[in-house]
Design a protein around this nucleic acid. Structure first.
Lengths: 215, 215
DNA sequence: AACTTTTTTTACCATTTGGTATAAAAATTA
DNA sequence: TAATTTTTATACCAAATGGTAAAAAAAGTT
């Protein structure tokens, strides 16, 4: 099959740029209001284009929403393939995993929030995806952790709930950032906060595993 | 001041019952759609009354929403006063705390979800409350944990992020229950799941503290 | 300069939204 | 039975919603 070499004209560049600006704007609006609470009008305003122009690019709200979700999931899948690094020790794998998950909360807070709204709402759009894509990966990862336990590399912890806790503890730095800002008395969580957070969460998880303590 | 003894007539009983049925219905709808995504119509249908009757009890959506949030917060405040139990050991206090928080996720999943939507959306309604009520309590609790550290009762962990992790790890059993159901291959999380979850989370936290291990 | 793509403008539309107004039926209480 | 409270029914409203339609201006390409 011959790859159609898409010419990168000024137009096509602008188009791609605007498309991603729209997606980022949609992300912001969906993150704040969830799907049903968001209007195409609001998304257009956020992207500073006309509603009609928005519709020119994304003919309806559902499609736009699914694109936003898909973008986020693609990034997650890419960063969070737990098994890939076969050679490493459990502690190294877990540390990298927590680190990656934390980065995603830091770099894509809005996508994370959109995802959170979607799941809390009962995952009407993503349920199928969870079943077909996430569960198989989850099952494999659980088996890996069980093998660690059997080999005596880590303590006899509960693998399923270990993952739930890791996800929750990292995800919360995106979803509940407002609460943390209030409690820490800050206007924004800065890099230092995220570093402390990552250190703390990593430390908790590594201790939970019964693997070597941090340093 | 003389307490007006409200006569508990059949009418007043029915009224109270219907009012709380409305609140529970509103909770369900808000939990699924968030504030902006929920309609009074949908709440009325869920409560199986007419929209007009709903408005008779709660003249507008915002008021209803605030009542639902307030109900949830009152319960939380009551159950989660960390400092109350002065006599106990750190481990006992933490165990009870995790237990209570877990119960709240189990018993009030919808209220928890409404709260989650609210915070993820930037806490437009609750921000003031977080500042005036939650932060002072948080500051006290952090100080308590620091005193534990200074006395050598627990390891030198990060108190702020310890709380963030505990909240996230427990809250997730309400908010992300759909995801867990899919991953555990269950239609509903049952009592056994919650027991396992509580055991696992408690164990993680106690290990993180460096307190005695679970049995 | 001719052509294509992008963007805006304007107008429109059916549906849903939160809510008001009124009246009357039904249930409860005194 | 009369008075009060609760509930529903019906009609209505302005605003917002997710679009459709058409056309023309603006920008970019050939």
């Amino acid at each position: 099959m011959v790859e159609k070499k898409a010419k990168r004209t000024k137009q096509s560049i602008n188009r791609e740029e605007l498309e991603s600006r729209i997606l980022r704007s949609a992300e912001v609006v969906f993150a704040e209001k969830g799907y049903s609470g968001s209007s195409m009008e609001a998304i257009a305003v956020t992207a500073t284009i006309s509603k009609q122009n928005l519709i020119y690019y994304f003919p309806n709200k559902e499609l736009l929403y699914k694109r936003v979700l898909k973008e986020m999931l693609d990034i997650w899948i890419e960063k969070l393939s737990f098994l890939e690094t076969q050679g490493d020790t459990p502690e190294a794998i877990i540390r990298r995993y927590v680190h990656e998950k934390m980065q995603l909360s830091r770099l894509y807070p809005n996508g994370s929030k959109v995802f959170a709204h979607e799941i809390i709402s009962g995952a009407p759009v993503l349920k199928e995806y969870l079943i077909s894509h996430l569960k198989p990966q989850f099952d494999r990862d659980v088996i890996l952790v069980k093998s660690w336990i059997n080999k005596g590399l880590v303590d006899d912890i509960d693998p399923e709930h270990l993952f739930f806790t890791i996800w929750a503890a990292t995800q919360t730095y995106a979803d509940f950032s407002v609460q943390m800002e209030v409690l820490l008395g800050k206007h924004r969580l800065d890099e230092e906060d995220f570093e402390r957070a990552e250190l703390a969460v990593t430390d908790f998880v590594v201790r939970a595993l019964g693997a070597k303590k941090n340093n």
